[in-house]
Simulated assay, not measured.
Amino acid sequence: MKIWLQTMLLLIVFLAVPAFAVEHLRLATTTSTENSGLLAVLLPPFEQANNCRVDVIAVGTGKALKLGETGDVDVVLVHARSKEDKFVAAGYGVDRRDVMYNDFVILGPKDDPAGIAGLADAAMAMRRIARAKATFVSRGDDSGTHTREKQLWQAAGVVPRGDWYLEAGRGMGEVLTMADERQGYTLSDRGTFLAYRGKIELAVLVEGDRRLFNPYGVIMVNPARHPHVKVELARKFMDFLTSAEGRKLITGYRRNGEQLFYVAD
């Protein structure tokens, strides 16, 4: 009888006390941070230290910033500096911080029908691809990678159109798979390419041009526009990304023995 009463009392206490609500941080970020596997390394230590969960929406940079504009997320982690600056200047974001960088690479089939392998000028490479009407798979999704691709076409003096130019409207990982299946060319961040190497046969054909530099920034959505933004947790997340611990995780992350990202100075 005594044991039964104790059990009932414990049950009543358990039901009377509401379950502890874990706080959620809404993060809009690029597909490259997810496809590369970096988030799987970065997020668990932050979540554990702050007893929270980070709800990730991985989309192109343009869509990520749009989610910030509408207040559907608390913080964005993206890679298109011109778009980021406009986002902040328009009052949608505050406290932008440099986080890390890698670079873009132009990938293609090993037989390289457009003859771009080894070129130091990325715009010239794009011009040759267009001239050869060689298959090119574009993100076509207003992402940071797509933004850089459009800048390269402009620098090349080319308006890409025709059967050879395919706009996928997909994330980086899917685009790499599509380009590989079609034995075509594409522009990729190096991190996602390294994560997919071994799954695809595409090779790095053009790299090193200063126009291929790829910096990432983190921005808190402006709480003055959207009062529901979780300012304290968002700031903790930004502090974590730029802390010694976060920087160590970023620089220590490797795939196939190669470093994918480098921290900003």
Rank of each mutant, 00 (worst) to 15 (best):
V78I: 03
G68W: 13
G208R: 11
L15N: 12
Y262F: 14
L11I: 10
A114L: 05
D141M: 02
P113E: 05
V22I: 07
V221A: 12
F261G: 12
N35I: 08
D72F: 11
K248S: 12
P18W: 09
A58T: 02
G93L: 03
E245R: 13
D111T: 11
N214F: 15
V218K: 11
L67R: 08
E23R: 12
D239E: 09
A90W: 00
S188F: 08
A234L: 03
A155F: 04
L38N: 06
P18Y: 14
N102F: 09
I250L: 10
A125Q: 00
Q48P: 01
W164M: 06
A21W: 09
G257C: 12
I250H: 08
T29M: 04
L25N: 02
F87A: 03
S82Y: 14
Y165R: 02
N256R: 15
G184E: 08
I250P: 15
T29H: 08
M220K: 06
A49L: 14
S32F: 13
D55Q: 08
A155N: 01
K110E: 14
A155C: 03
Y92S: 08
G198Q: 10
R161T: 02
E84R: 11
F237E: 08
A224Y: 01
E34R: 12
P227S: 10
A64V: 01
G184C: 07
D74V: 07
E84G: 10
R182G: 03
G68N: 02
D72G: 05
G246D: 09
R247M: 09
T31M: 08
V75H: 03
G60E: 08
T145F: 04
F87M: 01
S188Y: 09
Q151C: 03
G191L: 10
V159T: 14
H226E: 04
D265I: 00
R26H: 13
R161S: 15
S138N: 12
D111W: 04
K133D: 13
I116S: 09
G173R: 04
V59C: 06
E245F: 10
L10A: 07
E149N: 04
R128M: 12
L15Y: 06
F14G: 04
E201M: 05
K236S: 10
K199F: 10
G108S: 12
R225H: 15
F14H: 04
A90Y: 12
P215C: 04
G118S: 06
D74W: 13
D72N: 13
T186W: 01
V204T: 02
R139Y: 13
L107Q: 04
V56A: 10
A122I: 00
S32Q: 05
E149C: 00
G108Q: 04
V76Y: 11
N51Q: 14
R255Y: 14
G257K: 08
P44Q: 05
C52F: 13
Y196T: 00
S82Q: 15
T61P: 01
A16E: 09
P44L: 07
R97M: 07
G144C: 00
A156P: 05
M8N: 11
D74G: 05
D189K: 15
T29N: 07
T7W: 15
N51L: 13
L25P: 05
T145E: 06
D74Q: 11
D180A: 05
R235K: 11
E181F: 02
L187T: 07
W153R: 03
Q154F: 14
G140H: 09
G162T: 07
A234M: 07
D55P: 01
D180G: 07
L194S: 01
G60P: 03
G157H: 08
R247G: 12
L233C: 07
